[in-house]
């Protein structure tokens, strides 16, 4: 039995299936519990359903991107581990890099399937798993205290009872009395977008052949701008529910065209 058959054995699929099944069950429980809690505190059912619908649509394209990551990883680590790594705690940007570091740490030249053995596989998988648990460990030990501390600081600025808008309230409807928490959250997200976008500009400026990420981001931004203008017209208000997903789809199509042209 060669290495790839061993790491793709049905017993490993079964183990991973059980772990992912458990995670899926927990997600379903949290979803149902939160939906019921939303109804219980008087939120509009339409908003809750809209959130589910929108999040589902939003997730499709990035998930296909993650699936491509599973396929890339499975070449050296087999499908079961790759499936588990990117379904539980994993991150697309993290896995290949860490697998490579771990393979080098045990004396291989890198994550090279011709050098791998089941022994190496178990060590690499353990490094990949334990190496990414930091965020989860923080949640287990500090989440309650941390959120309470933050909540205490901004409690006076929040007015929870009056925040649920009607189902048809515009998504970005401005509200009076922004609080520090709200500003910090929006600002942090702007910072997140800035870190990524500036990295694409920097990569392009240093090597013009790295133009695809910047081009894709620019097309997505342009399409989003058009959708933003469109959604201000009552006839096209529905666009705002799909604007991110559609912008991404068009930008990814542009990347295919530009990639094919070179």
């Amino acid at each position: 039995m060669n290495y790839l058959s061993q790491v793709n054995a049905s017993s490993l699929y079964l183990m991973v299936g059980c772990i992912i099944g458990f995670v899926l069950l927990m997600c379903l429980f949290f979803l149902v519990r939160s939906y019921k809690a939303g109804i219980a505190i008087g939120m509009d059912k339409k908003i809750l359903q809209k959130t589910i619908r929108n999040s589902a649509v939003f997730t499709i394209l990035p998930s296909v991107g993650i699936l491509v990551g599973v396929i890339a990883l499975s070449g050296a680590l087999g499908a079961p581990l790759s499936w588990m790594r990117l379904s539980v705690v994993g991150a697309l940007q993290y896995e290949l890099n860490v697998a490579d570091i771990a393979a080098k740490a045990i004396g291989l030249s890198g994550l090279n399937v011709s050098e791998m053995s089941v022994g190496a596989f178990t060590t690499v998988s353990l490094v990949m798993t334990v190496g990414i648990l930091g965020g989860g460990i923080c949640c287990i030990f500090f989440l309650g205290r941390y959120l309470r501390k933050l909540g205490g600081k901004k409690k006076s600025a929040d007015t929870p009872a009056a925040d649920t808008p009607a189902a048809d309230t515009p998504a970005a409807a401005p509200k009076k009395g922004s609080n520090i928490g709200n500003i910090a959250m929006v600002a942090m997200f702007i910072g997140l977008c800035t870190a990524y976008i500036s990295s694409y500009i920097g990569a392009f400026a240093n090597d013009a052949s790295n133009f695809l990420p910047l081009l894709t981001a620019a097309v997505a931004a342009l399409v989003m701008f058009i959708f933003t203008l469109l959604s201000k017209k009552p006839r096209f208000k529905w666009v705002e529910n799909f604007d991110v997903a559609l912008s991404m789809l068009i930008a990814m199509a542009a990347a295919v065209i530009a990639g094919g042209a070179i």
């Binding site: 991107g65 976008i197 894709t216 931004a221 399409v223 989003m224 604007d243 930008a251």
Partner: peptide
């Protein structure tokens, strides 16, 4: 380029 597409769209929005 899924991630650039995501942050291009979101970057503009924010």
């Amino acid at each position: 380029n899924v991630v650039p597409a995501l942050f291009g769209a979101f970057g503009l929005k924010y």
